[in-house]
Computed example of a mutant assay.
Amino acid sequence: MLELLTGTGLALAAGLNAWIPLVVIGALDRFTGLIDLPPGWAWLSNEWVLAILVVLLVVEFIADKIPGFDSVNDIVQTIVRPTAGGLAFGSGVSATTSAVTDPEAFVASQDWVPVAIGVVLALLVHLAKAVARPVINTATAGVGAPVASAAEDVGSFALAFAALLAPLLVVVGIVLIVTMVVVLVRRRRNRRSRHPQTAA
């Protein structure tokens, strides 16, 4: 049960920012004794992999805070964040997908299931974020982009650390994400009902 919460928290964090959970996992494994990655995921704590992940994190961190460019970044991240979510969920539940030499055996072994779950979870969060960002930019004339992005980064860090160090807190994160999505959907519907010609 705790492994599922860990994987879920990491995948949701990847939906907000692809690189944060991967950097957190790799860094905690390499520099602390707080987590122990299974052999199939040990590459995440390799110093070169960590260095590349940090560079990618910095690029996304900056790109996501520029109004207009953040929406372009979201389009690019439609593939990246779900992939990162699959990797994060897989490593979080200790799945072994080190080398797929026989795809048939891989499918039969069910090792792909955690990765697929992570992909779906991260994709759902990413889509909610991608839909919300243009609305925020329009409503705030772009001023809200860096604020929303910073909040998402903080949420991603919090979810990643909670998933690895206190998995039960992931439930709180799930409730917050669902609440935010419901609020955004309701606001969008209210705007459409007030300005039907604008929505069209």
Rank of each mutant, 00 (worst) to 15 (best):
G85F: 03
S98D: 15
R81L: 09
Q77S: 13
P114D: 05
T83G: 12
T78K: 06
A99C: 02
T83S: 14
F89L: 02
V93A: 01
A116W: 07
F89P: 04
V80T: 07
G86Y: 05
S94N: 13
Q110A: 11
F89R: 00
I79H: 07
A105S: 12
S109A: 10
D74Q: 09
E104G: 15
T96L: 12
T97D: 08
A88M: 06
D74N: 14
T96P: 02
F89A: 03
I79R: 06
F106G: 04
A116G: 12
A105G: 07
R81E: 11
G92I: 05
D102S: 13
A88F: 02
A99Y: 05
S109I: 01
G85Q: 09
T96F: 08
Q77L: 13
T96M: 14
T97S: 07
I79L: 15
D102R: 00
V76H: 11
P103S: 09
S109K: 00
V100F: 10
D111L: 06
P114G: 06
G90L: 03
Q77G: 06
Q110K: 03
T78V: 09
V80D: 05
G86H: 03
F106W: 12
S98K: 03
G85L: 09
T78W: 10
S91F: 02
I75R: 10
Q77V: 04
T96R: 07
I117A: 09
V107F: 07
V100A: 10
T97V: 15
A88R: 02
A88K: 02
T101N: 14
I75A: 15
V113D: 01
V76F: 15
V115A: 12
I117P: 06
A99P: 00
D74I: 02
T101L: 10
D111P: 04
T83E: 12
F106P: 14
A105V: 14
S91I: 03
S94F: 10
G85D: 10
Q110R: 05
T101A: 11
A95E: 04
V80H: 04
F89Y: 15
E104R: 12
V80E: 05
S98N: 14
Q77D: 09
F106S: 03
F106E: 08
T97N: 12
I75L: 15
A105Y: 02
A105P: 06
A88N: 05
A95S: 14
T96K: 04
A84C: 08
D111I: 03
